[in-house]
Nucleic acid binder design. Sequence first.
DNA 1: TATAGTATCGTAAACGTTTACGGAAATTAA
DNA 2: TTAATTTCCGTAAACGTTTACGATACTATA
Lengths: 348, 348
Amino acid sequence: MVSIKDLAKHLDISIGTVSRALNDKPDVNKQTRAKVLQAADNLGYVANQSGRSLRQGTTNAIGFLIESGADTEGNSDNFFMGVIDGLQSELSKHKLDLLVLPCSTDEDPENYVKRMVARQLVDGMIISATHTIDKRIDFLSKSKLPFVALGQSETGKNHPWIDLDFEGVARVSIDRFVKNGHQRIAIALSANQLNLGSIFLKSYKDSLKRHDIEFAPELVLQANSNDKGGYAIADELLNLNDRPTAILLVHELMAHGLYRRFAEDGLVVGRDLAVIGFRNSAQARMFSPSLTSFKLSLRDLGIALAASLLSTMPAYQKHYSGKMLSQIWPMEIVDGESDAVKIPKNPI
Amino acid sequence: MVSIKDLAKHLDISIGTVSRALNDKPDVNKQTRAKVLQAADNLGYVANQSGRSLRQGTTNAIGFLIESGADTEGNSDNFFMGVIDGLQSELSKHKLDLLVLPCSTDEDPENYVKRMVARQLVDGMIISATHTIDKRIDFLSKSKLPFVALGQSETGKNHPWIDLDFEGVARVSIDRFVKNGHQRIAIALSANQLNLGSIFLKSYKDSLKRHDIEFAPELVLQANSNDKGGYAIADELLNLNDRPTAILLVHELMAHGLYRRFAEDGLVVGRDLAVIGFRNSAQARMFSPSLTSFKLSLRDLGIALAASLLSTMPAYQKHYSGKMLSQIWPMEIVDGESDAVKIPKNPI
DNA sequence: TATAGTATCGTAAACGTTTACGGAAATTAA
DNA sequence: TTAATTTCCGTAAACGTTTACGATACTATA
């Protein structure tokens, strides 16, 4: 590996000048700068990050914290890949690299964050899979490392975050159901602890209240956010005395199981039950009848996350003066056939 | 941030001794070591990685190179998440951290690898999405950085690699088809350049030859590895003069489109066409009739990759004396209903 | 011409570690 | 008691950068 010292020796100038030339500092002659850049290119010089980090206390890298376990909230499709692509697109504008830091299922997330922060290999962090009570946020708030959370938490709010508009998804869904005459509307939630569920549930309740529909606890169903869970929920639903006529699937990965269970009884989604899913994954289009769902541009979300983070970092703030730190990320509904049924005469 | 210097001052001993105590070096008194560890814990000391890297030229981290674009050969999030979990499980045994390095769709993969190597933030690399001709491998071979490839390449083979047993998958599939009386057997490949396709195709041809079945070029179908591609392939297949009675889907993400296209003509997979898919994804179980496919433990694959890499790194070799550097990763077939049809009397 | 200002560069310290080396104290051997 | 050995610890250099500071030479101003 060729160092700055080698460059200096090769050009017979001081390492200080070489460094200044490489870093576009003002007080260096144009010709010498040209020579330095030329030589750097020839010899294949590239700055050693450790040396640079040690001196400046900066790494030119941003970390994206994810959980590497298999089923993280049913994000089975390319959720992260899409977000990552957006993150990079924005970060690369500032010559920042993205390091994805996967927290293993074996390790306590808080401990993992501590380790990664201590390692000092990133200048800022984006954390995902936010929990209602999230110790990582506690820790990061205390540390001086800039960070942005994908997903709100109740742990502390004076940090930037971006959250998908779960509230809006639930509201729009319920409104649409009600508009079509539905009165008994169910909601299917994931069985885990993520904050997502509580937001959805609250918005669901609020929407019902707005329409003067009484909240029925038995219509809040919980299961794992996958095929099996969907089957179980459909089963539970079909066994209710007073069956719902519509259901909102917070995790549309449940959809397939639901379709499957219905098919077993000769029932058809969209005719015997109105279904709206969240969030428009690659699979959503595959259903028959097609699933009404919500569209989300993962790439744009990634870009927004990066912008939000950078706007809190002094070195980059100038580029993001007008940006909002935190925001609710809106999503558009995409019409399918699964919620076609209106005011059913024979509620299932 | 508390440094080793702070620790030394606090304990009124030299920084050399502190460092030795923390790193389990032999020549340090047991009591002083205990004191040092205690103080480090109290003050929340954790070694600065930049300083350490600069001095030792080592980072205690392994990089996993992936491509962050949306459709990377149908390897959705789950694929990587599973592998990552396995990687970490093995790496953590040696106190190594895993950094996932996503190559953006905007950037040339070779250039990205160069940048990441130059950054010197990992001691070794695992690269994925290997192409038949892969410049990254060229570069890494020249550099001194240890690496292992997930997927073979023709670029140079004197480096460790692990490849899924595509050859076996094709062979077992064709054998099973033939055993059930099929003679016209198609194969659906992805339309892109990955090495996977060529291996599959070769094995497909070899298997046919073994059974004295003439190779028919029109039975090699190509499309994008997704729902639409499957639909297109089914369409093409149904328009053939002499239709095949069986098909091997190299990317079972195509399966849904194929099912869909068949349903349109009132045809049923498993009755009117024998289908075997690859690789047993979460969706595979959801099909009806269920898709016969191949099982793959992503976690175990990750563990093997890590072991393979570490066995080439001097500092860790002692733990992996007997390990093989490169290997073909076997997969088991999982019976479904999609290939139930035997020697059809009325070939579609 | 003398002075002030400017452009350019070299010097050296600092970031936080690790580690080779040597020295002092403690222990053992004679 | 002395010499030899061992145990423990401090010193200082080194890794590759960046950057404050000062020095030099040149240019413009009076």
